[in-house]
Amino acid sequence: MEHISLSQIAIVAGILLILIGLWAIISQRNIIKMIIGFSLFDTGIHIVMVGVGYVRGKTAPVLDEAVNVKEAARQIVDPLPQALVLTAIVIGLGITALMLAYALRLYQKKKTLDVKKFNDLKW
């Protein structure tokens, strides 16, 4: 328990979650399930990125009375991956909503959610 750190747990869990999401995307036939797999994939990547930015024993990069401003560099974790992940989450919501809107219209055209039935361009 002593020699593993939080960032190792985070990175391993995130990579396994990425694999679960990938499994959903390539093996499921239901469109909604594929979108769920995409959102799991997204979450996994975010966990890995935040885990890479974590520094052992440091605290959050918000400087209030709990953190000394002069010695901030020795007390906080890396703020850059957090900022990138924050924007990525918001974009992920936009993409998910867009995919769901397409899925809804596809369902209304074909009355099915199975990707195998959408074979109009197949030859």
């Binding site: 990069p61 918000v62 400087l63 560099a73 957090q82 924050l86």
Partner: peptide
């Protein structure tokens, strides 16, 4: 174990350059 250079710059110079308590 420690911050890289970019993050250290943000942590040290950020309060003077930007003035926001929330570095993110």
């Amino acid at each position: 174990q420690q911050l890289n250079d970019v993050a250290a710059h943000y942590a040290e110079k950020g309060p003077q350059e930007v003035g926001a308590a929330n570095l993110v």
